[in-house]
Design a protein around this nucleic acid. Structure first.
Length: 955
RNA sequence: GCUGGAGUGGUGAAAUGGUAGACACGCUUGCCUUAGGAGCAGGUCCCUUCGGGGGUGGAGGUUCGAGUCCUCUCUCCAGCACCA
């Protein structure tokens, strides 16, 4: 017979009404009795419908909010809407909807849906970023940052769609293409607003270290900031014709270019200089007008060509391109040699100084360029392999690569002699290494028809311990490349004593790479068969007075020697916050008739969005079409004054919303200092991993800037950060309208109840780490069954004292559920509920005390059912303001521990708690299997960890 | 390529260095019958001569004891990537 199931619709309705009537979720932010706990989740964009992903974000964080509330914390759990953004504007373009009305309607629908979740959000502190009450303060904070030089204007590239004839926001560019029409995006130069995030790069980096965040989050931020330490060096520029040597830069200094390098130790190997095509020095020289470059036409053409290329095209074309600046030479500050100067688009204008010294021997990109343009490659670092040895004997050695018909010669030693190698040998005194090599090849293989192809200039220094001679050795190995022209073989020359010790084999380069494990031989193989740059460390050569020194150790001396300075560079660029869009926060500035920038005085804030605008795509922001805005500016500031037409990136709005929550309705300040002091930093912030480098970094920057202005009391906004996972469609694909696989939670909630849906989501996997989970209906069904069992259990409740076995079960459950919930491990917490329920089901009666404890433990996870059962059991008030069950200490009299023999589990024994080793041994001997094993061997050692394990070592 | 993270049943997963696979899904055997998205009892890592034996991507190592720590290696995921 079907058991009774609870009526989730009725239960949810009555619970939600009760909570509203009791108003239990409104937080008294000034409460000084209870400990404060600020729990934050990323507020949503009001796209319209709530999908299952929103449940995963809001309802699961709510579990934790309810848990903390029951633990007696003064929990602050607010919500709001990140309501500026493109979809509202697209709707306006598409069907003429007013973005404000469209957005408000969406928010209203979403608020209602969130209520069905039964979250304990404090709606009285709601924040809506598109409301003038909120953006007034976004504008005010912008002004503060402007006053302190943290926002500024400069010309910069924006993304431009040639088909739609409009500027695109970064978010609208997908893989270098326009989101709407799929055409390739071009760059356009416009004057833009920036925020000086790079000034905070170092602090954003170092303050990351102590944060208790997952390493992958911190590491993604570190990569985004991209710190690299190096040096800035100056290269003097000479002109072919002495008469033109008059040319000087803007400050009147002799012509020179600065380069940034992370490898100043390789300066002696710089054989040419490359400038970005956009480098100001090049533009300056072209403007100079006196034929600085004899191939000026070619230079201009190349610059033109690259400027037309999209970013995508520049990246796609892996083949290096560039043009030599004819008639110009640079002076290598280390060697004083004159070297050529190029422009090439593999050098980025926006990083470092926009110029590099090219060291083809030790940089892959420079190497590729040098090969293409036939430029000299000068190695300045000799690799060091093997182990460092004390007082080594120095020996001259050779390693030879012998090539024949696409294969290389390898000597396959017997494994005990070292495995596969190339040909190697020791140089006799005063012998030419090439002679040594030829001799060794012939002695070991008999081949005689050898031709020396190349002899590497560099050496490999290889440290090893020669066991045969009991001698520490440092070999200085010369690398040689031979070609075997015919397989003529002279067996006579084979050394007798080498016969049988090894096999001679011809192998492919790939096989050799795989099977040779000696670094020195591998280097030789790569050196000739796969030529490229050596980017590792070693000993300097071709480096004048620094020859023979360790490259790292000599680094700063070389910087001094060439008159450079140590500098640090960051990959992070300043934050471009201008958007040529309507539905965003207006930038609170105006321009006087001369075009100078003026902040809009705070009495005119909020500087509201005009409504008389044309949304159709154009080169400028829709704000430029507003008559009202123009008139407003002239009315307030005077004739000839003009408005700013751009709006702010929505990431600015979301960089401080958690400050506003604390004082959401304040008309006189952006927040409240005493509340900020009491509540910051946010204790726990949960969100999606897609925001790791954007929102999370921007808000950290914003917060630090406000901290420096004494507007917030902490240097970091968030104490803990958790990235949640992703709920996929039933097909395992990411949910999207495109795939038609969006799971509608409303339907599920109707069928199985809000509690079942939320618990299923909580059970799906660990919430404290990101993962992707396909939605499975079966899971929600199963969870509903479990909730029915909890409900049915109430029929067995009797007003009796708690039994000992109930106490034991409850003690275990409380400990597990409390610990797991604290760590966001809701999946294992729920397994704790399940075990407890099963144990209670096994008895004929359940004591009311135990059942109420179960209901309390369930309350954060199934808030509606728990409320209903609490009421039914006669609980006072709401279960959600009741206290979380305290841990119960139980004295278990017996424990079952495993018995291992030599580390393998061979049985288990039941012991009195805290039993002695003797008792444990007695019990172990009594066990049939263990007893037998004890008889078979001699007991060598006993490891006894009371309450855990007994391990017997038997020999 | 660089940097992180992770590899455990058919699936989601669980295990402060101490009995690997808890808790579920799915599958399966049997029972029950107001045929339901029902309930109950059992089985479900592999091998087995039913005594046991093996097993956490692979190979080594540390340890009385390793899924967990160390070295190498393979695979997958994520971030960054012409950043000098």
């Amino acid at each position: 017979m079907a058991k009774e199931r609870f009526d989730h619709i009725a239960i949810e309705k009555s619970a939600q009404e009760k909570w509203e009537a009791l108003d239990i979720y409104a937080t008294d932010l000034t409460d000084s009795e209870k400990e404060s706990y600020y729990l934050l989740f990323e507020f949503p964009y009001p796209s319209g419908d709530l999908h299952i992903g929103h449940w995963f974000a809001f309802a699961l964080t709510d579990i934790f909010a309810r848990f903390k509330r029951m633990q007696g914390k003064n929990i602050f759990f607010p919500m709001g809407f990140d309501s500026f953004g493109l979809p509202a504007e697209n709707a306006a373009i598409k069907n003429g909807a007013d973005p404000a009305v469209w957005t408000e309607a969406n928010m209203e629908r979403m608020r209602a849906q969130v209520r069905t979740m039964g979250t304990s959000v404090d709606w009285s502190k709601e924040v809506v970023t598109s409301s003038p009450e909120y953006y007034k303060w976004t504008q005010w904070l912008f002004s503060k940052l402007y006053d302190h030089g943290l926002t500024y204007r400069k010309e910069a590239a924006v993304k431009w769609c040639p088909k739609d004839q409009t500027v695109l926001a970064n978010e609208q560019v997908i893989d270098g293409r326009c989101e709407r029409c799929d055409s390739e995006v071009e760059e356009k130069f416009l004057t833009q607003w920036f925020m000086g995030i790079t000034k905070y790069a170092e602090r954003l980096l170092t303050d990351l270290d102590p944060l208790p965040w997952r390493e992958e989050i911190k590491d993604a931020q570190r990569a985004w900031i991209g710190k690299s330490e190096g040096a800035k060096l100056s290269f003097r520029v000479l002109f072919a014709d002495d008469q033109k040597n008059e040319w000087r830069d803007e400050e009147g200094n002799p012509a020179q270019v600065a380069v940034f390098t992370t490898r100043p130790d390789t300066t002696f190997g710089a054989t040419y200089v490359v400038l970005a095509p956009e480098h100001p020095w090049v533009a300056g020289a072209l403007e100079h007008g006196t034929d600085v470059f004899s191939n000026e036409e070619e230079v201009r053409a190349y610059i033109q060509e690259t400027s037309k290329k999209t970013e995508r095209e520049r990246l796609e074309n892996k083949e290096k391109t560039g043009v030599k600046l004819e008639g110009v030479r640079a002076v290598n500050p280390a060697t004083k040699e004159e070297i050529p100067v190029y422009i090439a688009d593999y050098v980025l204008a926006s990083y470092g100084t926009g110029a590099v010294m090219a060291v083809p021997a030790h940089d892959e990109r420079d190497y590729a360029f040098a090969k293409r343009f036939n430029l000299p490659v000068t190695p300045v670092i000799d690799p060091v392999t093997g182990d460092e040895q004390e007082d080594p004997l120095h020996k001259g050695k050779i390693v030879a690569v012998v090539e024949h018909e696409g294969r290389v010669l390898s000597i396959h030693w017997k494994p005990e002699l070292g495995g596969r190698l190339l040909v190697g040998g020791t140089v006799e005194e005063d012998e030419d290494p090439a002679v040594t090599a030829a001799r060794e090849i012939t002695e070991e293989t008999g081949y005689t028809d050898l031709e020396l192809v190349e002899r590497a200039e560099e050496m490999v220094h290889h440290g090893y311990f020669a066991f045969s001679k009991n001698q520490a050795t440092l070999a200085h190995t010369t690398l040689l490349h031979f070609r075997l022209n015919s397989d003529a073989c002279d067996e006579q020359k084979l050394e007798d004593n080498e016969k049988g010790k090894f096999e001679v084999e011809w192998v492919t380069v790939e096989e050799a790479e795989r099977e040779i494990h000696d670094d020195q031989h591998l280097y030789a193989l790569a050196r000739f068969m796969k030529p490229g740059a050596y980017v590792g460390d070693g000993l300097l050569r071709n480096s004048g007075q620094f020859d023979g020194r360790d490259n790292r150790e000599a680094m700063s001396e070389i910087v001094d020697f060439v008159g450079g300075e140590r500098v640090t560079n960051y990959r992070l660029r300043d934050w471009l916050v201008s958007r040529q869009r309507y539905w965003g926060c207006p930038i609170p500035v105006v321009y006087d008739p001369e075009g100078a920038v003026h902040l809009i005085p705070s009495e005119h804030l909020p500087w509201t969005l005009p409504t008389d605008v044309d949304f159709s795509p154009s080169a400028e922001s829709p704000l430029a079409t507003s008559k009202e805005l123009k008139e407003r500016v002239e009315r307030i500031f005077g004739e000839g004054w003009t408005p700013e037409y751009d709006t702010l990136d929505t990431f600015v709005d979301s960089s401080w919303y958690f400050l506003r929550y604390l004082d959401a309705n304040d008309e006189n300040d952006f927040s409240d200092q005493s509340l900020l002091k009491k509540w910051l930093p946010v204790n726990r912030y949960s969100g999606g991993s897609e925001h790791t480098t954007m929102h999370l970094l921007y808000s950290r920057f914003f917060h630090k800037a406000l901290y420096d202005l004494a507007l917030v009391p902490t240097p970091e906004p968030f104490e803990e950060r958790f990235n949640r996972g992703l709920i996929l469609g039933t097909d395992g694909q990411k949910m999207s309208k495109r795939w038609g696989n969006i799971v509608n939670p409303d339907e599920m909630v109707q069928k199985f109840g809000s509690d079942a849906v939320r618990m299923y989501l909580a059970f799906i996997g660990p919430y404290n780490e990101p993962g992707s989970y396909p939605w499975k209906l079966d899971g929600a069904v199963a969870m509903r069954k479990f909730l029915d069992r909890v409900f049915q259990l109430s029929e067995k409740v009797a007003d009796e004292a708690m039994t000992e076995s109930e106490r034991v079960s409850l003690a275990k459950a409380i400990k597990k559920i409390t610990g797991d919930t604290e760590r966001f491990k809701f999946n294992t917490a729920i397994s704790g509920h399940m075990v407890l329920v099963r144990e209670l089901e096994n008895a004929d009666v359940v004591s009311k005390e135990a059942y109420l404890a179960l209901v309390s433990l369930m309350a954060p996870f199934a808030p509606h059912l728990a409320e209903h059962l609490w009421e039914r059991m006669g609980g006072e008030g709401s279960v959600h303001t009741a206290s979380w069950p305290e841990e119960i200490a139980v004295e278990e009299d017996t424990v079952v521990i495993g018995v291992q023999v030599n580390g393998k589990r061979r049985g288990e024994i039941s012991l009195a708690k805290g039993a002695s080793e003797e008792k444990a041994m007695e019990a172990a001997k009594a066990d049939e299997t263990i007893g037998r094993l004890l008889h078979e061997g001699v007991l060598d050692k006993v490891v006894y960890v009371p309450g855990r394990i007994l391990n017997l070592v038997i020999t």
